[in-house]
Design a protein around this nucleic acid. Structure first.
Length: 209
DNA sequence: ACATTAAGTGATT
DNA sequence: AATCACTTAATGT
């Protein structure tokens, strides 16, 4: 499995990589596929090899709210917690693009913690990264106006997708930010007037770097 | 040509 | 910032 090597060469020691190749299951997801849904129990810990996954929190009524994105090499601390504690998922994980994921069976998560320093570091770093992302998500929601939130969102997409031309609808943005499409359309229009972006149907062109 | 979906807008809360 | 009620524009069949 060259994919595992490609993603973790130099991060995990060879012995661990070999073990991973033996026990991990690889899966492919299309954009929009749900990997883990609210209330699901998880029997294996996902590690993202390629693509982007978004992590969403369920709202009290019906909506969803985007917490953060996972990129190559990332895992989700919430899923680890879920695996080890045998709890149900508090979040939904949904593929945002074509995605390859390695699943580590429950049993090995613990085992490797004592066996491989690089694995322990990976898990700890993962917790730390997710925690930081969670804080910044909280800051966004609590302290920033919707227009700034939208601009941050667009910049993140730009970075994640590696392109200035974002194929996305106003409705999709509204869903992720848990607001209404009308509000998104208005604020995007104002961003366009300020020359941050240009708008066409189904896509947004980022202008300022 | 018609239906469907995305986006724009004024008015109101 | 949200909602309503509509209009306009782009796209699919």
């Amino acid at each position: 499995m060259l994919e595992l090597r490609a993603a973790f060469q130099g991060i995990f020691e060879d012995a661990l990589l070999q073990e991973m190749e033996e026990v991990c299951k690889l899966k492919t997801y299309q954009a929009g596929d749900v990997l883990i849904d609210f209330g699901a129990t998880i029997k294996a810990m996902p590690i993202l090899l390629t693509g982007v996954i978004k992590i969403l929190r369920e709202d009290f009524d019906a909506g969803e709210l985007l917490l953060y994105f996972l990129e190559k090499g990332d895992s989700c601390a919430l899923s680890i917690d879920c695996c080890i504690g045998h709890k149900t998922s508090e979040i939904r994980a949904q593929a945002d693009s074509l995605t390859r994921v390695a699943f580590v069976p429950n049993y090995y998560i613990d085992q490797w913690m004592v066996k491989y320093p690089s694995w322990r570091n990976f898990i700890l770093a993962s917790y730390s990264n997710r925690f930081e992302e969670l804080l910044s998500a909280l800051d966004n929601i609590a302290f920033l106006q919707m227009d700034v939130r939208i601009l941050n969102y667009l910049k993140e997409q730009q970075k994640l997708r590696g392109t200035d031309l974002l194929q996305i609808t106003h409705q999709e943005i509204a869903n992720d930010l848990n607001t209404s499409r009308v509000v998104v359309s208005r604020l995007l229009k104002s961003l366009e007037n300020q020359a941050y972006i240009s708008l066409q149907r189904n896509n947004i062109h980022m202008l300022k770097k």
